[in-house]
Simulated assay, not measured.
Amino acid sequence: MTRHWSFAFSWRWGGYLAVAIVFAVVCGFLSNWQVSRLHEKEQIQALVDRNWSADPVPLDEIVPDRTTFDDSHEYQPVSMTGEYLVDDQVLVRNRPRSGKPGFEVITPLRLDSGAIFMVDRGWVPTGNEQDHPDSIPAPPDGTVTVVARVKPGEPELPGRSASGDQIATIHLPDLASRVGGDSYTGAYGLLVSESPEPSDARPLAAFQPEVNEGMHLSYAIQWVIFALLAFAFLGYAIRQEYRLRNADDPRVRESEERRERKRREKRTDADVEDELLDSVR
Rank of each mutant, 00 (worst) to 15 (best):
S6F: 11
F23Y: 15
F23I: 15
V26Q: 11
C27N: 14
C27Q: 12
W33Q: 09
W33C: 04
E42K: 13
A54P: 04
A54W: 02
D55A: 11
E61P: 04
P64M: 04
R66Q: 14
D70Q: 03
S72W: 01
E74P: 01
E83G: 10
L91Q: 03
V92A: 04
R97I: 00
S98D: 15
G102K: 08
I106S: 05
T107G: 14
L109A: 07
D112H: 02
S113K: 07
I116N: 01
F117H: 13
D120A: 00
R121Q: 00
G122V: 05
V124A: 00
P125V: 11
D131P: 03
S135C: 01
I136Y: 00
I136C: 02
P139G: 02
T143Q: 12
T145N: 14
T145P: 06
V146P: 02
V147L: 10
A148E: 09
R149Q: 05
P152D: 10
A162H: 03
A162R: 02
G164K: 04
Q166D: 03
I167P: 09
L172H: 02
L172N: 01
D174L: 06
L175K: 01
A176P: 07
V179P: 08
G181F: 10
A187G: 10
L190R: 09
L190D: 10
L190H: 11
V192I: 11
E194N: 07
S195P: 01
P198S: 12
P198C: 09
S199W: 02
L204D: 09
L204T: 11
A205D: 01
A205G: 06
A206T: 04
E210N: 11
E210I: 01
N212S: 13
N212L: 01
G214M: 00
G214P: 00
I221Q: 13
W223R: 14
L228N: 07
L229D: 14
A232I: 15
R239E: 12
Q240F: 04
Q240K: 12
Q240T: 09
E241N: 04
Y242R: 12
D248H: 11
R251H: 12
K262G: 12
R264G: 05
R264C: 05
E265G: 10
T268A: 07
D269P: 08
D271S: 04
V272K: 09
L276G: 07
L277T: 14
R281K: 11
